[in-house]
Design a protein around this nucleic acid. Sequence first.
DNA 1: AGGTTGGTCAACCATTTGGTTGAATATGCG
DNA 2: CGCATATTCAACCAAATGGTTGACCAACCT
Lengths: 124, 124
Amino acid sequence: MVDQPAALWFSGAMSNDLDTVFAAIADPTRRSILAMLLEDDMAVTDVAEPFDMSLAAISKHLVILTKAGLISQEKRGRVKWCKLEPDAMRAASVWMQGFGQFEPVNLDAFERFLETELAPPDER
Amino acid sequence: MVDQPAALWFSGAMSNDLDTVFAAIADPTRRSILAMLLEDDMAVTDVAEPFDMSLAAISKHLVILTKAGLISQEKRGRVKWCKLEPDAMRAASVWMQGFGQFEPVNLDAFERFLETELAPPDER
DNA sequence: AGGTTGGTCAACCATTTGGTTGAATATGCG
DNA sequence: CGCATATTCAACCAAATGGTTGACCAACCT
């Protein structure tokens, strides 16, 4: 069972989701988690590994990301897999784009960005 | 300077600015303020007018937006003018774009968004 | 000078946030 | 079965957030 049914994302509930999404990505730990999941799906324990905080804390962060729709979690056996759900960022992205025409993403720059800024903390 | 930045945006100082920017726009009041300033520069009192909260509260919100670089404030005479600074959202936007190829801005969608989500509270 | 307007400051308050620990619940394994 | 592993739950805590009020300062207008 995926905790976050896809159909719900686009119905009325979408409005205040901007709150939830922006609040979720305002935290550096959670941004790092998202960056990690960009490369691959991960189990909760593996997500937690590079961070200097308890598993329970990471578990809470994952709940917040899930409620924001930014990831989904599926339990297979005793491990719960976390999967990035990039679509959830679309509405937020659209909102931001309204404030200026940002040039199309420079992938080189983005990659450097990932390295210096978004990598899990043990790499900084 | 709008076009220079790639190198600058991604180097050190930029890091915690993502925190600040995302935290700033996570608040609906502040998003409304930004939307209002999208149309025109405004004095603090005028910004506050449509909201059901004290001037001091709005003043605090404006400080937060200023610290995030999302607006600037200039005092002329006794009135302090607030001006949108859209560039501050660029790094944040780039970060988000990394999570999916969002189609180039859909203006219709954005306009609907403005109406339902970003209009000052007296219009909702 | 004296009063009004624009805005911030300071102290305070309730709620939320991000973390901790220890116990609890599943699930898998020998 | 009995134990280890994966994850969450519950209670707690300190700090940050979003708001209030009342005093305050600065600038403009007679």
